[in-house]
């Protein structure tokens, strides 16, 4: 699966594209792992930019759940942004809106995590 990751200060934006289904979930997990490893208190914070994710199945939700638990154990911060309606719907059905902090846009997500990162984001 395609990723378009970038960094704004201590905020790392992980941006997968396409379908997160049973065929791609393991790749998604492996590609997400390095960002999670550095996501802890005083280190990186992670935004999952889902603007290019067109579909997610239960196995993708499972990867996200385990990622959130890992980050919480590390006292880090991870949020999700810009979900397409079909993805947001499955989030709501599975009550993942109680598991993950979600923001309608990437800018709001970056702003929630760091004012310094927001300044870098706004500077382009």
């Amino acid at each position: 699966m395609e990723f378009n990751n970038r960094r704004y200060g201590e905020v790392v934006v992980v941006a997968p594209a396409g379908r997160i289904d049973h065929a791609s979930a393991e790749d998604f997990r492996l590609r997400l792992a390095p960002a999670l490893e550095h996501c802890s208190e005083g280190r990186d914070r992670v935004v999952l930019d889902f603007s290019a994710v067109e579909y997610i199945s239960s196995v993708g939700l499972r990867v996200l759940m385990l990622a959130a638990k890992q980050v919480k154990a590390q006292k880090g911060a991870i949020v999700i942004a810009a979900m397409q309606p079909v993805v947001k719907e499955i989030f709501d059905i599975s009550r993942f809106n109680y598991v993950f902090a979600a923001f309608p846009g990437l800018r709001e997500a970056v702003a929630d995590l760091s004012t310094q990162a927001l300044a870098l984001y706004d500077a382009g």
Partner: peptide, 10 residues
Amino acid sequence: RPGSLAEARP
């Protein structure tokens, strides 16, 4: 159905 991350189970 989870009401929080702590309650969420795969």
